[in-house]
Nucleic acid binder design. Structure first.
Length: 566
RNA sequence: UGGGGUGUAGCCAAGCGGUAAGGCACGGGACUUUGACUCCCGCAUUCGCAGGUUCAAAUCCUGCCAUCCCAGCCA
């Protein structure tokens, strides 16, 4: 079913090109600063939540770059803040990346693997008089930092002798002080226009148990200090990250050039992926989960990778989507319909076809004997016999979609209405003769006559049948639950809407149909990429709800539909 | 009154001094045992705006405008 199956995807080697690849090629090429080296990247998530499709873009860029240029890409948990991180997220992250089809081989790291190195590098900085132990309170630090438009003031501790700083720093590590008592700060420039350069804190005291290092440490490095060191220790040549780190680059470079690191990584930034009608911030996704507004991190309406997987998205579709969106530095919002297009494109070629009826009404073939029944063999993938066949049964009483019959249809309606010929896909061509209604006028049964000459659904010589509809044999149809989804939010950009996101939730984001029917074949032959229910869309067994005696399907995406009632 | 980015169609996005790729969406048509798929056709005289340089500018220069990010002991 749609659990995590090892990805069968193999990179096909499209000639992808974008500015990051160009820059890297220059760096590694003749005359470049890293001439002769092989590219080495890393994907560095913080294990404090589940991965979403925005991360998929970063993964495709990080791992994809290594793949394209014949280098390596590491996976690294950026776990420098013990209060926010958890081992449970580490497992989910690894699972999602593997599912996407990428592998880090034996290069799985934690930032915490380098805590000892970082500590030593911090001492190096103190020794060079480039860092000092500060005892300002958070409020004082804020006050002294100045504002965006005015310079900051130097901390009174800035001139503390290096020997004293070193002693204090060692005692910080030894656990002699409570949280917040001291910090280690880089000595850069309190008047810099770049706030990140105003003597940033690089170590803080936190008496917290870390999910990897336990209680070995009570001081933890800050991102800006830790990240370049992690990259250098792993031999990363290019540290690719998103745009909001652009003004951290001077600090990244400062760290890299003031320390005796084993290598000098280069940071390059790209724009994050954003998609309309959904949210991409970890904070909001977490809130949706915590407030039970959705059914967990893998709710099929969520843009999380686990949600998309449960929804029926394929790794191939997601990677294709990320690659085709390109890489640039423009903040952009991609239309969700493009993602849907990529899924349809993938599934169209390989998802077996089946029939299902979501809103059933009985269709009686009045000239087909009550006691007769027959079977038709249909191809799983029309036109591609190597994908196999399966049988469908036919009898006097069938089930069709209620909307496929109209007593008084508008022009260009090609389905059932009195007098019209329609093909029952794979079976026969029938002529509608009328319908039966109950006292309230509701249609309870559609009536038609079949043409025995059209067995298999082929028309008579010269006969043109405009409409083909799907159907099920009432006798063999299997009851099933089908869940249909719509956008989780009613507005295109919920993240930047001034209203509270609770007000923007789409009350109809999920529709559960308990009385749908499907072909019995679907119980015997669960396709892990799901099915196309003809004329309805692509569906997949729900990995959580499907049980031995109850089939539950999620609609991954609708089919395109150019029918416009006039 | 600071620093760093970015502006090419409804949405992404190529383009890097020689006269606006491609995809999505949209509209029209053909085909069709899925109103799907596939296939045709259409869709920016113009690149945020205004000047300038040049035989020639989306590409170079100047100015302006718009928009995003930054004042965590988060990442």
């Amino acid at each position: 079913m749609n659990g995590v199956t090892p990805s069968e995807e193999t990179y096909t080697g499209n000639e992808i090109s974008h500015f990051i690849l160009d820059e890297i090629r220059k760096d590694l090429g003749p005359g470049g600063p890293m001439e002769g080296r092989k590219v080495h990247t890393r994907f560095p998530p913080e294990p404090n939540g589940f991965l979403h499709i925005g991360h998929a873009k970063a993964i495709v860029i990080d791992f994809g770059t290594a793949e394209i240029l014949g280098g390596l890409c590491n996976l690294r948990m950026d776990d420098t803040n013990p209060v926010k991180e958890d081992e449970r997220f580490v497992r989910a992250i690894k699972e999602d990346i593997h599912w996407l089809g990428y592998d880090w081989e034996d290069r799985f790291y934690h930032a915490s693997d380098f805590f000892e190195d970082m500590y030593l590098y911090a001492e190096e900085l103190i020794g060079k008089d480039l860092a000092f132990v500060c005892e300002q309170t958070p409020a004082e630090v804020r006050e002294y930092r100045g504002s965006l438009t005015s310079p900051g003031k130097e901390s009174p501790w800035r001139t503390r002798p290096r020997e004293e700083s070193l002693d204090l720093f060692r005692r910080m590590r030894a656990g002699e002080f409570p949280d917040g008592r001291y910090t280690l700060r880089a000595k850069i420039d309190m008047a810099s226009g770049n706030m990140n350069m105003r003597d940033p804190v690089i170590y803080r005291i936190q008496h917290e148990t870390h999910h990897q290092t336990g209680d070995a440490w009570c001081i933890y490095p800050m991102y800006d200090f830790a990240h370049p060191i992690e990259d250098a220790m792993e031999g990363v040549t290019h540290s690719l990250c998103s745009l909001e780190f652009e003004d951290h680059r001077p600090l990244f470079d400062w760290v890299v050039s003031n320390l005796s690191l084993p290598s000098r990584p280069r940071q390059i930034e790209f724009a994050r992926l954003d998609i309309n009608y959904t949210v991409m911030s970890k904070r909001k996704l977490k809130a949706l989960v915590d407030e039970k507004l959705v059914d967990g991190w893998d709710d099929p309406r969520l843009p999380t990778l686990s949600g998309l997987r449960r929804r029926g998205y394929t790794p191939r579709a997601i990677r294709d989507f990320c690659e085709r969106n390109g890489v640039s530095k423009v903040n952009s919002m991609v239309d969700i319909r493009f993602l849907e297009h990529c899924l349809r494109e993938d599934l169209n070629d390989r998802a077996p076809r089946a029939m299902a009826v979501l809103d059933p009404v009985r269709l009686t073939i009045t000239n087909y004997p009550e006691d007769r029944e027959e079977a038709f063999t249909v191809e799983n993938l029309p036109g591609q016999p190597d994908h196999g066949t399966h049988d469908i049964t036919f009898s006097r009483h069938l089930l069709i979609e209620r909307e496929d019959f109209m007593e008084d249809p508008p022009a260009k309606y090609h389905r059932l209405y009195p007098g019209n010929h329609v093909r029952l896909r794979g079976a026969y061509i029938i002529r509608c003769t009328g319908c039966v209604k109950d006292e309230e006028g509701r249609i309870t049964e559609v009536l038609a006559e079949y043409d025995p000459e059209t067995r298999g659904g082929s028309a008579r010589e010269g006969q043109k049948v405009r409409g083909t509809i799907h159907w099920l044999d009432e006798k063999t149809a299997l009851p099933a639950t089908v869940r249909l989804f719509d956008h989780l939010f009613t507005v295109e950009a919920p993240d930047s809407d001034e209203r509270d996101y609770h007000e923007l939730l789409n009350p109809d984001s999920i529709t559960v149909i308990e009385d749908a029917f499907v072909e019995p074949w679907l119980k015997e032959d669960p396709s892990y990429i799901g099915y196309q229910f003809m004329r309805l869309g692509y569906f997949i067994h729900d990995s959580q709800e499907t049980t031995e005696d109850r089939l539950v399907f999620n609609r991954s995406v609708k089919l395109k539909d150019s029918y416009k009632p006039e």
